[in-house]
Design a protein around this nucleic acid. Structure first.
Lengths: 343, 343
DNA sequence: TTTCTTTACACAATCGGTTGCAATTTATTT
DNA sequence: AAATAAATTGCAACCGATTGTGTAAAGAAA
């Protein structure tokens, strides 16, 4: 298998006896090039198997038509859908997508921002690592006019674009739904505590809903988890069911936790939803397959990805740098299924 | 927010009164540069906030330290784990990962190979689109010495690296397991028909296992699906259960199908595994959460990703182009859980 | 016919590292 | 001390597309 050299615009220029500048312009339908020449150039390029070298173009223009995506992990339904949305939108405008997983490590995240900057990505979309408190490693993007969009897990104090759902309202709606189903003692799982934290916002919604509907807030019904895993959920449920007056409902801020709750309840002979109504969060695939299937809060992952990618691309293409760095709120809804349907 | 210019090796060179070549070499510990100079250069680079421009390096060297990953979709547990494995391994060697989703479209796949080639990716890892028959669009990589690795869904007639599991053996083992559990009428779902097709291989294993254990092959128990979805599975199951002599076991070549079967059976009052034993494929997260949890064939997604990435990187770094383009077989196992445990 | 516009294309610098080779300095040998 | 070897660093071309500026040719206006 012989080694071909890449065909360049120089090769085309030589063949047609034209300047490389003419080739370059002809290939992108520049108005100063005659139709005749354009046609000729394109035909020859095709024949010679010319494929533009985006590295060269990127170097010259100091941009790469690449969007860097930095997220905790991709093996999570919400995040893989998010990426999918980003990728679909990016491709439409001929952008590539580079992904990196921080695995929720601050240190990794810092390194990866360097790496992305080094690749001269045109824009960055990020969902923060759990560990991350300080976000100054993202400053390099803002400082260099590289659009930066945070999605879902966003910092509280960084002046840039954000694409999120209204976690407070979602938490409120979820809790309200359980109350409307007749629940009196609603448990809640949460994580972290910092103000602005996504789980904390959901918790605030939970607390306010209880208050608005005249239900007492019972600290023993709120469990703080270190990890949002199935096993952590089981453990938490066992604790809840061991209470002298156990809960009759649960707002879990993740479907995996809701699943663990439903299954733990079933094993204990506690009937779902009659004795214990459960609402999850995210609308992960599993939530509609498990039995009983799980009432959940929709979390428009793919849409959020598309929105984020559009912001990046529009900012680049239409030079919107001057505009305010706004927050985009996407809508969420209560998706009622069996696990909570008491009435 | 003022616009900074990127710091380059020229800036460092000027500051230290050295040549750019010296800076370039010092930064990568070239042996012809003295330790003193190396230290000085690195320190200054750090101070000045130098970040190398990988585009420039890539242009010069005609490679980008980037691996292109072309897969049907990323929102599928197996594939997102695959990517995760690729990304983890790539990063260790300082490679970036560009992902593209063909959505099982041949046309998209062709476009994306062009796009990847255009980005001068250092290597390509691909799982073919369902639609793809002709793979000549991958020739451009082979022709230009860009390592190409097919994973899982691989072409039968392309001389390049492949990372797969032995689908025939896996199908055989799955079927054998059901036979050992006492199943006599084992159904099977499949898709496609071409020789070498992954599902066809599993089916061959199924057929041979039946033969080896003296069970008759009944055509009515083999269902050919167009899509491997939950709904298609339900439909197929209803058909199976409607037979005058319905199956007492099912080998489903995907966990989603297995889940659909288990749930459809339960709804019909058919006891799993007593009356109907089920084995799935992939060991998707859902298989161990659903009740009864599902016996499955492990499919080492992340490992396959790591293996593929290692092949790409080793081929590049150690110039292994001359070596035989071998097939890497990863191991699979029967993971026995409740859905099949009759004995 | 001459001058002013357009139209169409060419020249050459540029982006920022990389690398072969030449040149200079320093160390070692005779 | 002279000569040779070894260690450092500099010079300049190079990768390939882009783009501001200049120029020649063709058409329009005077």
């Amino acid at each position: 298998m012989e080694e071909h050299r890449h065909v360049t615009i120089y090769d085309i220029a030589k063949r047609l006896n034209l300047a490389t500048s003419t080739i370059s312009r002809a290939l992108k339908d520049h108005h100063t090039i005659s139709d005749k020449t354009i046609k000729k150039v394109k035909k020859t390029a095709e024949e010679m198997g010319f494929v533009p070298n985006t590295l060269a173009a990127g170097l010259r223009g100091n941009k790469s038509k690449t969007i860097g995506v930095l997220i905790p992990t991709i093996t999570q339904p919400f995040l893989s859908s998010l990426i999918s949305g980003i990728e679909i939108t990016a491709r439409k405008s001929d952008y590539s997508v580079i992904i990196m997983q921080s695995h929720d490590s601050y240190e990794e995240e810092v390194n990866m921002t360097k790496s992305l900057y080094s690749s001269r990505v045109s824009g960055v979309i990020c969902s923060l690592a759990m560990e991350t408190k300080d976000t100054s490693h993202f400053q390099q993007f803002s400082n260099n006019n590289i659009p930066l969009v945070f999605v879902d897990r966003v910092p509280k104090d960084f002046n840039t674009f954000r694409v999120v759902i209204d976690n407070y309202t979602a938490g409120y709606k979820a809790t309200k739904h359980l109350i409307e189903q007749g629940c009196k003692r609603i448990a809640h799982m949460t994580a972290g505590a910092e103000f602005g934290n996504l789980y904390n916002e959901r918790k605030r919604g939970y607390i306010d809903a209880l208050a608005d509907y005249g239900l007492p807030l019972r600290e023993e019904l709120i469990i703080n988890l270190k990890a949002m895993t199935y096993d952590a959920g089981v453990k938490a449920c066992n604790k809840l069911f061991g209470l002298k007056s156990p809960p009759d409902g649960l707002f879990a801020p993740g479907d995996i936790l809701a699943v663990s709750a439903v299954q733990t309840a079933k094993k204990k002979g506690i009937k779902v939803p009659q004795d214990f109504a459960v609402i999850g969060f995210n609308n992960d695939p599993i939530s509609e397959i498990i039995e009983p299937n799980i009432t959940t809060i929709t979390h428009p992952a793919e849409k959020m990805g598309k929105a984020a990618a559009n912001i990046v691309i529009d900012t680049i293409e239409f030079h919107k740098e001057e505009e305010a760095k706004e927050i985009t709120f996407l809508n969420t809804e209560v998706l009622v299924r069996e696990s909570s349907k008491k009435v």
